[in-house]
Design a protein around this nucleic acid. Sequence first.
DNA 1: GATGTTTTGGAATTATCGTTCCAGAATTAT
DNA 2: ATAATTCTGGAACGATAATTCCAAAACATC
Lengths: 192, 192
Amino acid sequence: MARPKEFDRNRALDKAMRIFWRQGYEATSIQNLVDGMGINRQSIYDTFGDKQALFVEALSYYEQLEGAQILQALEQPGSVKAAIRQVFQLVLDKVPEERELGCLMVNSTLELVGLDTKLAAVVTDNLKNSEGLFYRTLVRAQEQGELATDRDLTALARFLASSLRGLRVSSKAVKDLKALQDIVDVTLSVLD
Amino acid sequence: MARPKEFDRNRALDKAMRIFWRQGYEATSIQNLVDGMGINRQSIYDTFGDKQALFVEALSYYEQLEGAQILQALEQPGSVKAAIRQVFQLVLDKVPEERELGCLMVNSTLELVGLDTKLAAVVTDNLKNSEGLFYRTLVRAQEQGELATDRDLTALARFLASSLRGLRVSSKAVKDLKALQDIVDVTLSVLD
DNA sequence: GATGTTTTGGAATTATCGTTCCAGAATTAT
DNA sequence: ATAATTCTGGAACGATAATTCCAAAACATC
């Protein structure tokens, strides 16, 4: 019949995601994507739809990559505090070039909330998730006796989620790794 | 001789700042500024130079407004912990429409670091400042006996600065004021 | 009221934006 | 080979970007 459909779709999406990550949504032109994804302009439109649709998919892909690492860290048996520390440590353990891009989700939140309602819905949904994730983990900590029963888990989960956002902002602008490590250490001391 | 130079320069700059605040740098067009600043396009170029120069000035103006509030909070005599709490509370006490814009400095940091070296210099300079501000305040706390002498003030200052950034991200995406209050309360508990 | 400067509105310019269209080359199954 | 489909490169589209140019209107001083 015909030529085989698609090239390496996922590889192209990965490339696109990294371009959006580095430049943001508005600052990324279709031409940037054509140059960076290694496929033709027409193929981009055929495969991913328009720029907004491609961005949504890139964002989901990023969330999936990042979320998998976080889930793996949180779901490991043993000390919950160590698990939570590992989540924060994930940010520091990135290679510098990646760390200095910050977090695509946080970046996009600040860029798009209030501008694009459709894209805003995607990112705010993610915010809820991260808070819930911390909350369920803290419940486990209390069950294991790692956390006093009188601690306010909702407040703690909100704090951890917000602190992680702060760290991700800081990791984009602060090059000094020791400074970032200080932030993590003090943040985690709240659980003691 | 001639017509009186300038209209209300500061009022125009204030308008421009709020437009950048709401939309970000890239998403703000000169036409947006013409419509919103209430002065002519040509007057914008004559008075402020090009878009980048206007943005830098708007950012400085924002920093000055925000910084004045923070300084006033930190320099008040008495409890340093109360003073620091007040700095965080400033974010929550904003009217919702302003709170949901987040912080122009943080927004701009994530949008422009890595994209525009000149603009990046302005925002990273601000990051250093806020950390130093917290540090000097913590020194005072130690001198007043409000803080144990074995606390690592550098680490604490870094934590506070990063946490404030996180709160400012959260304040843009999280509408629930109680959730934001939880974040502040847990953050400040580190100083106890 | 004349003079000199500024503001104003709009057109002009050059560039780029996102998106679509099209013709030819490539590739697979028949 | 033929036919069907996809990739490719580039042109074309209408819209909008930032910036500049220009002529008319507004205004304070003399």
